[in-house]
């Protein structure tokens, strides 16, 4: 088991938004968390990353209890994070953004930027450009490339399809799958876009009002209506 969240409560200030959420992610898997706007998906993955403290419950990563450790330590232990809205550093150049990713993981040598450019040739063309001037799709690529540069064991992506035109969403999905297959990086992603959920997930947790209300795997992932029911009001 690469990641285990056990009855995690968390939120902003003292209020619990996420309530008793338990999930597991196995090594090599691609797992998604789906749910409508405002149900607490981002709050939960931020808690996994260590950007918000867990009020109670525990988080284990690679057989270690990381519940109390800081985000930067979790990153160095092998968690990569792509925030909602991509979160590139706008006034840093593309290359500087990628440099931020290198030397994160203390157990593995960081990935050569050339490898990143192989995956995302567009970034190479624009390496001296300020990241804030990239299109939505390019910013998504940069955010993923930047997290990849640290060679994480687990890559957490918060709504990678957000702000990207439909034709490019498919490319991003393929890229994430390729990263998983070729580099053996485990993927946990938050998503609301049906195409991406169905194309990418091997297993899927559905969240509503801060709690996990369903787990979908295997054949059921092809059940469009069932997945859709978790995303519509």
């Amino acid at each position: 088991m690469l990641l285990t969240a056990d009855r995690v409560f968390s939120g902003y200030g003292k209020v619990d938004i996420v309530r008793s959420v338990s999930i597991t992610v196995n090594e090599g898997e691609i797992v998604s968390i789906i749910g409508r706007n405002g149900v607490g998906k981002s709050t939960f993955v931020k808690t996994v990353m260590g950007l918000l403290p867990a009020h109670s419950g525990s988080i284990r990563f690679q057989e270690q209890d990381v519940t109390r450790s800081k985000a930067n330590d979790r990153a160095r232990q092998g968690m990569g994070y792509v925030p909602q809205g991509h979160g590139v550093f706008p006034t840093l150049t593309v290359e500087e953004n990628l440099m931020m990713g290198t030397q994160i993981n203390k157990k593995k040598p960081s990935m050569n930027l050339l490898t990143i450019y192989d995956y995302f040739p567009k970034l190479k063309e624009r390496k001296r450009q300020k990241a804030g001037t990239l299109s939505g799709g390019e910013q998504a690529a940069l955010a993923i490339g930047r997290a990849l540069a640290g060679y994480p064991e687990l890559l957490i992506l918060d709504e990678p399809s957000e702000g990207i035109q439909p034709s490019i969403i498919h490319q991003i999905s393929e890229m994430i799958r390729k990263i998983n297959r070729e580099l053996g990086i485990t993927i946990l992603f938050v998503e609301q876009h049906m195409g991406m959920i169905q194309e990418l997930s091997e297993r899927c947790y559905a969240m509503d009002k801060g709690v996990i209300v369903g787990e979908v795997g295997g054949e059921d992932l092809h059940n469009y209506d069932r997945l859709k029911s978790y995303l519509t009001v």
């Binding site: 260590g50 985000a71 930067n72 160095r76 925030p83 440099m99 931020m100």
Partner: peptide
């Protein structure tokens, strides 16, 4: 310098810098 890069990143978005392993 790396310090300079990390501090400019932290200035723009401390949370994301931390998620990249920077001890802000």
């Amino acid at each position: 310098t790396t310090f300079g890069l990390h501090s400019r990143a932290a200035m723009q978005n401390a949370e994301i810098a931390r998620s990249m392993g920077v001890n802000t």
